[in-house]
Computed example of a mutant assay.
Amino acid sequence: MTLGAVPRGFSWSGYRALIQAFLDRGYAVKLFGDLDPTKSHLVLRHDIDFSLRAAVDIARIEADMGVRANYYVLLQTEFYNLCSPEDWARVVEIAELGHDVGLHFDASRYDADLEMLEAAVARECSVLAAIMGREVTTVSFHRPAQSLLGLARPLAGRLHAYQPRFFSEIAYVADSRGLFRYGHPLDHEAFAAAKAMQLLTHPIWWPQAEAEDKMSLLDDLLQQRQDLLLSEAIANCKPYAEYRGRRASVNHG
């Protein structure tokens, strides 16, 4: 397959083709701790803002291709719950596929003082490690403040994705808002020269088949979440189950 013929759609097949293009170019896929900025190394980073289910799909694709990626999960979010049986199993599966699961840290919930952020990162990493049953060694920021971009020091003794050697001293490409707004990774000058790159993607934007409207993916996610909460309410509250049954009878009467 020539470079120009590589599919560029936001779908499972498009993602597989994208990673294969890097492998064909001679890149080695590395975790953050193993990156050598002087070599043809690619760091794959996934910030899980919305859907752990979508993250598992991408994690399986990567494992099938023999590559490992960095996945970052939020502790403080309304979109998933790491302590629920299904979401806990998803995080464990991602880790067992060989990927590194780190903390997606929302600094906006804390005071901007670095010492307070250090303490908060340490606390959240400890909680995540307890949930997963394994250590948390890396962090990425959720909607990072400008002051945190390019912060050279580790946080709470852990690498973070915006340290200069990962962010500004090598190429950095992201699919924020479901688009490569500043150019496709395969068009980047670093790719042409086979230089080190960090590629950030968000699994929600990469469904099995490409969506005509990216925002519809969030509609689908919210509907799934509503359906799950409804089924759980019915399963855990008999009076509510009876209430729903009466409503259904009236509506179909």
Rank of each mutant, 00 (worst) to 15 (best):
G14Y: 00
W12C: 07
N81H: 09
A209M: 08
N81C: 12
G26F: 08
A89T: 04
A145K: 08
D64L: 05
F105T: 01
Y162F: 15
Q208H: 12
R247E: 15
A174I: 00
P154S: 03
W88H: 15
D227F: 05
K39D: 13
A145G: 15
E86Q: 09
L155K: 02
L18G: 06
A28R: 14
N236G: 14
R45W: 09
L217F: 08
R90Y: 01
K238L: 13
Y182N: 12
G14M: 00
Y182W: 10
H184V: 02
H202C: 06
D219K: 05
L42Q: 00
L159M: 13
A233R: 07
V29T: 11
L82P: 00
T2R: 15
E210R: 01
V101L: 11
R247K: 15
L199P: 06
A120G: 10
L31D: 01
L75K: 06
D111E: 10
A145W: 10
L221T: 04
K30W: 07
R158S: 07
M65E: 05
R246N: 10
H41G: 07
G178N: 04
A171V: 04
H160A: 11
E96F: 03
E169M: 09
R153S: 14
A54P: 12
Q20M: 13
M1E: 12
T38P: 04
D111T: 05
T38N: 11
W206N: 00
G26V: 06
P85W: 00
H188P: 10
Q223F: 09
P37C: 05
E242A: 13
E93I: 05
W205C: 01
A130L: 09
Q208P: 06
C83P: 03
H184Q: 09
C83D: 12
L3V: 08
R153K: 15
P154A: 04
D34R: 12
A248N: 14
F167A: 02
S84K: 12
A248L: 14
H252C: 07
A5K: 09
